[in-house]
Amino acid sequence: MASSPPATPVDPALPVLAAERLTVHFGLVTVLRDISVAIAPGETLVILGESGCGKTVLLKCLIGLIRPSSGEVRFEGRSLARHSERSLASLRTKCGFVFQGAALFDSLSIADNIAFPLREHTRLAEAEIAAIVDQLLAEVGLPPQVRSRKPMELSGGMRKRAGLARALALDPPVVLYDEPTTGLDPIMTDVIGELILKVRARGGVTSVVVTHDMHTARKVADRIVMLHPLARLAADAPQIVFSGTPAELDRSRDPRIRQFIEGRAGNRLVEAAAGGGS
């Protein structure tokens, strides 16, 4: 089922999350240059782009895991740079982050992994925590038997869903997904897409999804922002090459966008052999 979600009215005056003129250097390499993005409440924004274009870095900047070299990130209007370590920690409880590799703690069981944020930030009794864990497992479609399993014993798709359950444990108003479907088969990819829609339906959750998978992007996005690797851009060209709805993306005539959504190699193989590009 490829029904796209109904477009929500976007009020740019009150973004939940906003990146303003973000630039990130790693050593001598510039990964992000002058990026500005605003995410409205209840909106699902998909950040699209090929590998190495800096989309994961942008996502990590949004919750302060990576500090930008210049520019700032505002969460509910307040700059992250103005938060102390402690208030940043409490702010992060409002954001669920689903990691590319799930980033479950190997030494803890699935149930303990999902319970981790609850134990860290709430004073709930163990019985209540167990009930929430069961409910979250059911919500992401994992059988109760996985409770006592270790992350290594689960398949990739199951780990991603467990990671999602952990990200949802504190009922965050914002959920960030880093490549949620990478390494999954097409059916499981669609399952994750369904889950993202389901989470969003939970009382207006704001979502940011970083992906290079067009199927997922079309399925969940209200709005798509496409980044281009800086190595392939002229020194003053904007790094955001597209911003709009999935339908507008499909109608775009920009050759860089056409190449990406149609998945064409172009002359990349020749470039790679010559040592240029990534």
């Binding site: 895991l65 409880t93 954001c95 479950l104 981790f116």
Partner: peptide, 9 residues
């Protein structure tokens, strides 16, 4: 990163 993202030290 996972710990930090959950507000844990």
């Amino acid at each position: 990163d996972a710990l930090e993202s959950m507000g844990a030290n």
